[in-house]
Write a protein that binds this DNA or RNA. Structure first.
Length: 480
RNA sequence: CGGGGCGUAGCGCAGUCUGGUUUAGCGCACCUGCUUUGGGAGCAGGGGGUCGAAGGUUCGAAUCCUUUCGCCCCGACCA
């Protein structure tokens, strides 16, 4: 048992903060709502970035950078967009020692500036599609910040594309939604439900919003990534027009999609336990740590350490990276050394001691299950690869089983209320309500519609609230 | 923005009601040494704070008064 981490069952939010602190992922910044992402946390982000970026490139996107400051007038151009973002915008009113004529918003998202630029760049159908992504920071003034989940400034990626036809833009929106789903499932080991947002949960200015929803280990939902079909809303506000093959002027159809550092919060809350962080091998900064252990300093440093280093080199070569570390903290006792890696979520620990040396084996200890076993020297490398794959798969399966076990069906509002208040988790129900109905449900139960799962897109039934037919199967939950 | 709480060492706290006997204390962490060492050791020694800030009352203030700044929790709000 970790002594510096509040048990999850005792106080979930405190547990979450303790895990972050113990793993040295982040710290509070001097400005309220802002956080410092420490090297370990940032390294996880770099890994997530690398996985996403590769997928973006594979689907034909390129990276660019747009400015941090956005003229306030830009945000005003799309009616719903202003309304949605005005309250959380930070404004720069002074610069160069003078008050500015027009305040600049610190970007809360870049649809507007990018729309403005696209209108200049796009003239002809030959210029389309435009498929650009940017990695950057954004600012949304939050009244109730939480590390990684909701901070005033955060890092993300925002893709912005422009297309000639609605069909193509819709295809892009769903394509990127599925890129997200794939990366979440395969790399972050997060089982997510990909689907459409209901009207009340839509992005301000979007025609349709899609999301990947994950369940945290307290059974609350977390939106891990979103993809928006913006129709011609922004194209009209920013005059993004092109001449089609017949010479007529048409408005483009645009999309935008994003994943932020919030996804790190999702990883933490999905996989970790009372001992601290647990990371899926594929995004872990350190996948394997090797600990030479001996009570005799000479043996430890002159016999075991060289062996450990040699093994680390081979493993790094085999795993293709710098993800294997040798622990040389000989001044610490073994227990302390174990815990430091346990709390940082290192997936696999290899212990190399005198007993192992004599037996010609290496001791393996899995972070996810705590399981220990000895492996013959000759088999260490393939066994490491196999174990890491097992851990990755186990984390995903474990999370998926948990989610499925905490997903329930409701046919009536009474049943719905009872499940939300007594069991929590996800509730699947047919829903055909309006945004006002969504507000009512939220006020009465605390739950909100999370998404209409893509996998059940064709299913319709009778609405649990209004009784209307042709309601769509919708997932509800309390959410972060 | 409404309700509640809190600012004393890196972290967590006691001391504040009943000003002076505290050169401001404790636990963890940190430093040194010895013994330990395969899931968080023990002993000994040691460094570090001027008590969020400003002003006031007093012979004397971490303790009382005024102002101010900041943070946390609950609520409202929120991609």
């Amino acid at each position: 048992m970790a002594r510096n981490i509040t048990p999850r069952s005792e106080n979930y939010s405190q547990w979450y903060l303790d895990v972050i602190k113990a793993a040295e992922l982040a710290d509070y910044a001097p400005v309220r709502g802002c956080m410092v992402i420490r090297p370990t946390g940032y390294s996880i982000w770099e890994n997530i970035q690398a996985k996403l970026d590769l997928e973006f490139k594979k689907t034909g996107h390129v990276n660019a950078y747009f400015p941090l400051l956005i003229p306030n007038s830009f945000l005003q151009k799309e009616a719903e967009h202003v309304e949605g973002f005005a309250p959380e915008c930070a404004m720069v009113t002074h610069a160069g020692g003078e008050e500015l004529e027009e305040p600049f918003a610190v970007r809360p998202t870049s649809e507007t500036v990018i729309g403005h630029m696209y209108s200049k760049w796009i003239q002809s159908w030959r210029d389309l599609p435009v498929l650009i992504n940017q990695w950057c920071n954004v600012m949304r003034w939050e009244k109730r910040p939480r590390l990684f989940l909701r901070t005033s400034e955060f890092l993300w990626q925002e893709g912005h594309t422009a297309h000639a036809t609605e069909a193509e833009a819709r295809e892009e929106t769903l394509k990127m939604l599925n890129v997200y789903r794939k990366v979440f499932e395969n790399e972050l080991a997060l089982p997510v439900i990909a689907g459409e947002k209901t009207a009340g949960e839509r992005f301000p200015g979007a025609v349709d919003t899609y999301t990947c929803e994950a369940m945290m280990s307290d059974t609350k939902a977390l939106q891990a990534g979103t993809s928006h079909f913006l129709g011609q809303n922004f194209a009209k506000a920013f005059e993004i027009q092109f001449q089609n093959k017949s010479g007529e002027l048409e408005y483009c159809y645009t999309t935008s999609w994003g994943v932020s550092t919030r996804s790190i919060g999702a990883v933490i809350m999905t996989h970790s336990d009372d001992d601290g962080l647990i990371l899926p091998p594929r995004i872990a900064p350190v996948k394997v740590v090797i600990l030479p252990i001996s009570r005799d300093e000479n043996t430890a440093e002159n016999i075991l350490l060289p062996k450990a280093k040699e093994l680390a080199e081979k493993l790094n070569a085999a795993l293709g990276g710098l993800c294997v570390k040798v622990d040389t903290e000989f001044h610490m006792r073994p227990g302390d050394r174990f815990f430091s890696h346990i709390q940082k979520g290192v997936p696999l620990r290899l212990e190399l001691g005198e007993k192992d040396l004599q037996a010609g084996t290496v001791r393996f200890v899995r972070r996810d299950t705590g399981e220990k076993f000895d492996v013959n020297n000759a088999n260490v490398i393939p066994e490491v690869t196999k174990t890491l794959d097992d851990i990755q798969a186990n984390l995903f399966t474990r999370a998926k089983n948990f989610r499925d076990a905490n997903t329930h069906d409701a046919e009536t509002y009474d049943e719905f209320k009872q499940i939300i208040s007594e069991k929590g988790g996800f509730v699947r129900a047919y829903f055909a309500g309006t945004p006002d109905d969504e507000v009512r449900i939220r006020e009465e139960t605390g739950a909100t519609p999370r998404c209409i799962p893509e996998s059940d897109a064709g299913k319709t039934g009778k609405c649990f609230l209004t009784g209307n037919n042709n309601a769509r199967l919708t997932i509800f939950a309390k959410a972060y």
